[in-house]
Amino acid sequence: MGRFRSKNTAPEIAVRRLLHQAGFRFRLHRRDLPGCPDIVLPRHRVAIFVHGCFWHQHGGCRVARVRTH
């Protein structure tokens, strides 16, 4: 699991781009909130956690598998 970044992952950046294009303003990685959410929309009181392929284990995805040697 050490190979996987916890911040600024590709899925997280994609979500941030969509939110920004839609005109939302947000904060990143607020440590003062439980779980340290990836994206926080303070005006709407919403916290967003973005989990990528490793956590969801998408079928056929090469990074979704845990490799043991």
Rank of each mutant, 00 (worst) to 15 (best):
M1K: 13
R3K: 15
R5F: 06
R5H: 10
S6H: 12
N8S: 13
T9G: 01
T9S: 06
T9M: 05
P11V: 07
I13E: 09
A14T: 14
A14V: 09
A14Q: 11
V15R: 01
R16G: 01
R16F: 00
R17I: 13
R17E: 13
R17V: 10
R17L: 09
L18F: 08
L18N: 09
L18M: 11
H20A: 14
Q21H: 08
Q21E: 15
A22H: 05
G23Q: 02
F24S: 04
F24Y: 15
F24V: 10
R25T: 11
R25E: 11
R25C: 08
F26V: 05
F26L: 03
F26Y: 15
L28S: 09
R31C: 06
L33N: 05
P34M: 06
P34E: 14
G35A: 02
G35Y: 02
G35V: 04
C36D: 07
C36I: 13
P37H: 04
P37T: 06
D38S: 13
I39D: 00
I39K: 00
V40C: 05
V40G: 03
L41E: 02
L41G: 01
P42H: 03
P42R: 01
P42Y: 06
H44P: 02
H44M: 14
R45S: 12
I48N: 00
F49H: 06
F49L: 04
F49K: 05
V50A: 03
V50I: 03
H51V: 08
G52S: 00
G52H: 02
C53I: 04
F54S: 03
F54K: 10
W55Y: 04
W55R: 08
H56L: 04
Q57H: 15
H58G: 05
G59C: 09
G60Y: 04
G60V: 07
C61E: 01
R62S: 10
A64T: 10
A64W: 03
R65H: 08
R65I: 05
V66Q: 14
